[in-house]
């Protein structure tokens, strides 16, 4: 017989070590990771990695750190399923598997001279944080930076320590609203869309570029409201979530109309996905 070709599989991860576990919220942790034997991983804001928990499985997780510090590779994980729970239970020193980075990015760099509006709901701040870090690092490039953040309650505001720092530095305006609160909460109570008129007060809508990340309903209604307020659908971006197995456009799971969310997304220009967003069960 002729020689047989040994055919390899693909999608093999690399080992990364958990160097720090930051407890963010009751069910949310941020894992700081370092490659076992390779250089830090450059990434662009909005991209994600596939994280593998040994003997459990693999899920996509957005990179949530500062892109200018790839040595500080951060992923924020909420315990919702088997894999995310296994990841959230890892302790310092544990090893996981990582593939990436994958996907499209928030185009903050091409929106120079404009007013950047970030709209985040719940954990949606995690994929936006690298973009905010990038924008703040080049603050002079932008007319302004505003963040509208929605959270369930004041106890569930992600990266609250960092928001305080960002706000204190005065480089950006932050509007945090919660779904419900006790009387100790002096901020607004309501959904993110309720804060748009105030957040955009005095800003010409044709100068705004908006980046939304959160539950799909929030992004759908948020984009609709922003469009009504005069922001152009070409100047809005959202980050979509769908089931993913391969992250390379080969497994078919994440299709959203003609797009593969893993490869053509997760960050999409709103205009491109407006129609399928309005159709049920796409």
């Amino acid at each position: 017989m002729p020689a047989e070709a040994a055919i390899s599989g693909s999608m093999r991860p690399q080992p990364y070590r958990v160097t720090e576990v930051l407890r963010e919220l009751d069910d949310v942790v941020t894992l700081r990771l370092a490659a076992e034997d390779r250089a830090p991983l450059p990434f662009r804001p909005g991209q994600f990695n596939m994280l593998y928990a040994f003997a459990t499985g693999e899920i996509p997780v957005s990179i949530s750190g500062d892109p200018s510090r790839p040595d500080e590779l951060l992923h924020t994980v909420r315990r919702v399923g088997a894999v995310s729970s296994a990841l959230a239970q890892l302790e310092r020193g544990a090893v996981l598997g990582l593939r990436g980075p994958f996907g499209s990015h928030w185009p903050v760099e091409t929106e120079r001279g404009r007013h950047l509006l970030f709209v985040a709901g719940g954990l949606g701040l995690a994929p936006l944080r690298p973009a905010i870090c990038r924008a703040l690092a080049r603050r002079a490039d932008y007319a302004g930076i505003t963040l509208v953040l929605g959270a369930r309650s004041p106890r569930e505001i992600l990266y609250a320590w960092q928001l305080a720092g960002w706000a204190a530095a005065g480089a950006m305006k932050i509007h945090v609203c919660v779904d419900h609160a006790g009387p100790e909460w002096g901020g607004p109570v309501g959904v993110v869309t309720s804060q748009f008129p105030r957040a955009l007060d005095g800003i010409a809508p044709d100068r705004v570029s908006a980046f939304l990340c959160g539950p799909e309903i929030m992004m759908r209604h948020g984009c609709g409201d922003l469009e009504h307020l005069g922001i152009h659908p070409e100047r809005m971006w959202i980050s979509m979530e769908r089931n993913m197995k391969c992250a390379t456009g080969l497994c078919g799971h994440c299709q959203f109309g003609a797009d593969f969310v893993c490869r053509d997304g997760p960050v999409f220009r709103y205009r491109r996905v407006r129609r399928p967003l309005g159709i049920r069960e796409v």
Binding site: I7, R12, L96
Partner: peptide, 14 residues
């Protein structure tokens, strides 16, 4: 405290 990943291989004759 290590994880080692290995590609699987299968044979494919001419």
């Amino acid at each position: 405290d290590r994880l080692t990943f290995r590609d699987a291989t299968t044979a494919w004759p001419k």
